[in-house]
Design a binder for these strands. Structure first.
Length: 697
RNA sequence: GGGCCGGUAGCUCAGUCGGUUAGAGCAGGGGACUCAUAAUCCCUUGGUCGCGGGUUCGAAUCCUGCCCGGCCUACCA
């Protein structure tokens, strides 16, 4: 059977910030799939690039007093370094700011124009006359036109939930220059997506180009359903141009107008392929306009919309091949919570590599990834434990405990009787391959571990360390080790897409490089065995903790200088905080600094905490303001805190609150906490360094 | 409010086109071994399969109602 031709892309990371462990879910997932295809003998190329255009890049470059080109060149170098550190095996890593991309954008644009999909409309937008730029929604703040809440973002109000256009804001202020922007009208170019409606319905709803939940989502939210009460929906036209100044490509024939970053970003997939083709003497048409090629996109759920509607529409119109499959994954959470800068879980790739082995993260992600769109949680204990137990303890241990017994003699010449061990594991290979093929890496790792779980007992039963002491058992010793090492090699092959480093070392140990999946089906015989050296080290919780600590420090420093998040094309950049809390409890009426000064907030230490037998919600706290100054405070936090966990910690109390006689005694203050009540109570604490008695200003 | 996914041992999950006493890994307990990276092996504790109702000879598995969690949406793209 001739090899399949497969072109794989991962979403383009935005050139506005470093790669972090959230990004890596995607690049690792994709890399595993790509390496699997290559191991199977398919022709598979892995294409990516930096996404470099848009306002956010300009703003950061200005802030750092350098050109956009200089900024994106530096970020690209960093991205490539980080990806290499995690063994991401791109065949080409390009940039959307390339001549190839400009040319392809032009080609696709022409086709879209010829198809009669483009129209022009005037759009009112806020313009910052100081910074000399139009303002994207997130660079404007002002008063909500509906509820009059102050300091709201440009597109929707966090207090009342209303949505509006930035031009409706009362007293808008540019966050770039703090000046008052003016409304300017400019023509924008729109693509009438609705003309492609029939095609998009067919593409997204027929066949298996999309995961089922994604197809449902598109039907429910954009395409509509003839059978549903709401009926069919009309697709909105897409605003694809931005007036100058804008960092991007100027649209031919429209002086002063640029393609919106999301127009040229996916075309970057093709442009990056073009670079690869030029380097390898291939024709781009053979990869992007050929029915022989399977195109697979991997991306995060946040950019579903662009890749499943606009992008197929663009490709279709311009006569390019459509993606065979769009694989969409969820986000990363750490210890059950969204990644956060303040708690140090927003770990950069670079920081991770200082403390931990990339193999561990590759394996952990693999063990959690399924074909579904679910989020993936990285819990420290599970992460450390899984890698150590499965990979170091079970798989690598097989080589570690047998290789040295055959260092002198090598592997047996014929494969010994092993009770069917090798043959059974070879048969499972088909199932493992299916799992990889379907992106069910969790299933693949489970199957692999099941094999490993059978081999260590075999070694224990055969006791090579006993055989070694009896010269007459030399042949049996060599046979036992030959079996164990062959099973080890088989596992290393099955794991090779996930753990390329391990596969490489396994190849070196047995003097037979791992290059093909088929090698797992035949035992290796008669080769010398190299001196065994550690292939992977166990990882330690304390290293993980150090990494978190460093991340927390880094981000504390950065916060002052970090520009706002960009129009990124990657998953999981900043945590997307819901505005639910604000909606549940809208902001209070404005107060003056004098009003605030009436409230005396103090740092206090809880010195005693006890249950009040008859109280349903209250705990009785004794807090110290330093010296002999203690207070008794009844706090409604019983459902959320155990008294023992409170003793010793610092809290913030309202120290001048009029004492209140309660059923159980006098309460001489109030402990500050956030949350909606019940079990949702979060006590406030000062940063370390604060001492009891200090006032909060 | 709507949509999607999920709720199975302390934890992470498998099992679900209905069929014998519900499984694995990790963690816990006991023992063994000493070749191995405090690794490995054996034995073992542990579950009313979210809750209620229905279909059936038989339901973790099908239907239905409810509860809980996550994500996405809320007339934006």
């Amino acid at each position: 059977m001739p090899a399949r031709k497969i072109l794989v892309t991962a979403a383009l990371p935005y050139a506005n910030g470093p790669i972090h462990i959230g990004h890596l879910v995607e690049y690792i997932q994709t890399d595993i799939w790509v390496r699997f295809q290559r191991l199977r003998g398919e022709r598979c190329i892995y294409i990516c690039a930096d996404d470099t255009h848009g306002t956010a890049i300009t703003i950061r470059a200005r802030k750092e007093c350098r050109s956009e080109e200089e900024l994106i060149a530096q970020v690209k170098a960093e991205h490539e370094r980080d990806f290499a550190g995690f063994r991401i095996s791109f065949d080409n890593y390009g940039s959307t700011n390339s001549s190839e991309n400009r040319e392809l954008c032009g080609e696709i644009w022409d086709a879209i124009c010829r198809a009669g999909l483009v129209k022009t409309e005037n759009v009112d937008q806020l313009y910052d006359t100081v910074a000399n730029t139009f303002l994207a929604d997130r660079f404007v703040r002002g008063t909500c036109p509906h509820c009059r809440a102050a300091n709201q973002p440009g597109d929707n109000c966090s207090a009342c939930g209303a949505t509006y256009s930035p031009t409706e804001l009362i007293d808008p202020v540019s966050t770039l220059s703090d000046s008052k922007p003016e409304i300017r009208s400019a023509p924008h170019l729109f693509i009438e997506l609705n003309q492609l409606r029939d095609f998009l319905v067919e593409y997204t709803q027929q066949g298996d180009h999309l995961q089922k939940e994604i197809a449902n989502y598109l039907r429910g939210h954009f395409l509509g359903d003839a059978d549903s009460p709401e009926g069919l929906k009309e697709l909105k036209s897409w605003d694809v141009s931005r007036p100058a100044p804008y960092f991007g490509f100027e649209i031919p024939g429209h002086l002063g107008h640029y393609w919106y970053v999301w127009f040229d970003a996916p075309i970057g997939y093709i442009a990056s392929t073009k670079q690869w083709c030029d380097r390898h003497g291939e024709r781009l048409e053979d990869w992007w306009k050929s029915d022989d090629v399977e195109i697979h996109h991997f991306l995060g759920k946040d950019i579903t919309y662009f890749h499943t509607l606009f992008w197929p529409g663009m490709l279709k119109t311009a006569g390019f091949s459509l993606p065979r499959k769009i694989h969409i994954h969820g986000f990363l959470t750490v210890n059950g919570a969204k990644m956060s800068k303040s708690t140090g879980t927003f770990v950069k790739a670079e920081t991770y590599l200082k403390y931990l082995d990339p193999s561990a993260l590759r394996y952990f992600y693999a063990s959690k990834l399924t074909p579904r769109v679910d989020d993936l949680d990285l819990s420290v204990d599970e992460f450390v434990n899984k890698f150590n137990a499965d990979i170091v303890g079970k798989v690598v241990n097989l080589a570690s405990r047998t290789a040295k017994f055959v260092e002198q003699v090598g592997l047996s010449k014929t494969y010994p009787e092993d009770g069917g061990l090798f043959a059974r594991a070879a048969a499972v290979g088909h199932e493992i391959a299916d799992a990889y093929q379907e992106c069910d890496f969790a299933r693949a790792t489970r199957l692999i571990c099941e094999i490993a779980d059978q081999v260590n007992p075999f070694v224990d039963t055969e006791q090579p360390w006993v055989l070694r002491k009896d010269p007459s058992q030399a042949q049996r010793l060599q046979d036992v080790c030959t079996i164990a090492l062959n099973l080890f090699r088989q596992l290393a092959i099955y794991l090779a897409p996930i753990l390329p480093d391990l596969a490489e070392r396994a190849g070196q140990l047995l003097h037979d490089p791992i290059v093909s999946w088929d090698q797992s089906q035949t035992p290796l015989l008669g080769t010398p065995v190299a001196k065994f050296e550690h292939m992977l080290k166990r990882i330690e919780v304390k290293d993980f903790e150090k990494m978190i600590e460093e991340t927390a420090k880094e981000t504390a420093k950065e916060i002052a200088t970090t520009p706002a998040a960009g129009e990124g094309t990657v998953a999981a950049s900043l945590p997307q905080d819901s505005d639910e809390a604000l909606r549940n409890e809208p902001l209070a009426a404005e107060c003056t600094i004098e009003d605030f000064a009436k409230v005396d907030l103090r740092v206090a230490r809880i010195v005693r905490a006890e249950h009040v037998p008859e109280a349903k919600k209250l705990l009785k706290l004794t807090v110290s303001l330093g010296g002999e100054h203690t207070r008794t405070v009844f706090a409604g936090i019983k459902a959320a805190y155990e008294p023992e966990s409170l003793v010793g910690r610092l809290v913030i109390i309202v120290a001048n609150l009029k004492p209140r006689a309660m059923k159980f005694g006098l309460s001489e203050g109030m402990v500050c906490a956030a949350g909606g009540g019940g079990t949702e109570v979060y006590l406030l604490s000062p940063d370390s360094g604060a001492v009891p008695g200090q006032r909060v200003h």
